[in-house]
């Protein structure tokens, strides 16, 4: 796997035992603190992704219609979309596509506008008011550049997390889903241009917490960034261009002689 292979990280939820090794490994590598939390009657802590928690194991007690019980564990975090709403909306280029097609984060460029937070169909980026910046998983680009696996993948004992070239990983995911049968499915390869984090799910996506069934880059975003913005840039350019043309053709704007008496009548000093 060289620095320019398009990679995909596979999360096989049917192998995850929710040890939270990945949740902690991520914090260790990225030097993110552990902050005080409360026990609210759940193993899930912190309760949601935060500026200092870029990956989170979500717990759900699930009873299907036949009363079969499963305790579901799902590792949540940035999906690294091919068509990433956050990259589209980011005005400063803090969010960008890396050579391996993941979504990188350059926090120095972040201006804290929080547009990415509204734009993300997976509700991933989180804001910290103290630093006025947004935080999310960057798929350990700093490690992958050095041919190391992401911290989460390295920490996973059960092999629930794996990473490799895109086609290989998608193939692996579908092979597992076929072996599992039932409602098992692959999540991620079919929307927003395909994500670089994909899942093997045991149940349909609607069963899982915070897992949009049909995530898209929103139409308004498309209209804003792909239509209106170029148009407005075009319009802005047109205004500047037109003014310049006028200057060249007509010279600087001078008051017309017939208007000067009007001004005097209005008593302008």
């Amino acid at each position: 796997m060289n620095n320019n292979t398009e990679i995909v990280k596979l999360i096989d939820t049917t192998l995850c035992s929710a040890c939270r090794g990945c949740q902690v490994a991520c914090k260790q590598w990225n030097e993110m603190p552990g902050l005080p939390t409360k026990q609210t009657g759940s193993y899930q802590n912190p309760p949601d992704l935060q500026w200092n928690t870029w990956t989170l194991i979500r717990f759900k007690e699930y009873e299907d219609k036949d009363k079969n019980f499963t305790w579901i564990f799902r590792k949540d975090g940035c999906m690294h979309c091919t068509n990433a709403s956050c990259v589209k909306v980011c005005p400063s280029g803090a969010l960008y596509y890396t050579p391996i097609k993941t979504v990188g984060v350059n926090r120095e460029k972040c201006i804290g506008c929080k547009e990415c937070i509204s734009a993300c169909p997976f509700e991933i980026p989180k804001y910290d008011s103290k630093t006025d910046k947004v935080y999310k998983c960057d798929l350990c680009y700093s490690r992958i550049k050095e041919n190391l696996p992401p911290a989460c993948v390295k920490s996973c004992l059960n092999g629930a997390l794996s990473i490799g070239p895109k086609d290989e990983m998608i193939k692996k995911a579908y092979a597992k889903v076929e072996k599992l049968g039932g409602d098992a499915n692959v999540y991620g390869d079919k929307f927003v241009g395909g994500t670089h984090v994909i899942y093997v799910l045991q149940f349909k996506p609607e069963v899982y917490d915070k897992m949009p069934v049909d995530p898209k880059v929103s139409k308004t975003l498309f209209i804003w960034k792909d239509l209106l913005k170029p148009l407005s840039l075009l319009a802005a350019g047109g205004v500047i261009g037109g003014s310049l043309l006028h200057y060249v053709l007509h010279g600087p704007h001078r008051p017309h002689p017939e208007h000067m008496e009007d001004d005097k009548k209005q008593g302008g000093v």
């Binding site: 914090k27 552990g34 005080p36 409360k38 802590n45």
Partner: peptide, 13 residues
């Protein structure tokens, strides 16, 4: 004493 671990499991239940 470990903030990362305490964050994940903060108190008795």
């Amino acid at each position: 004493w470990q903030a990362w671990l305490l964050e994940a499991m903060p108190a008795a239940y």
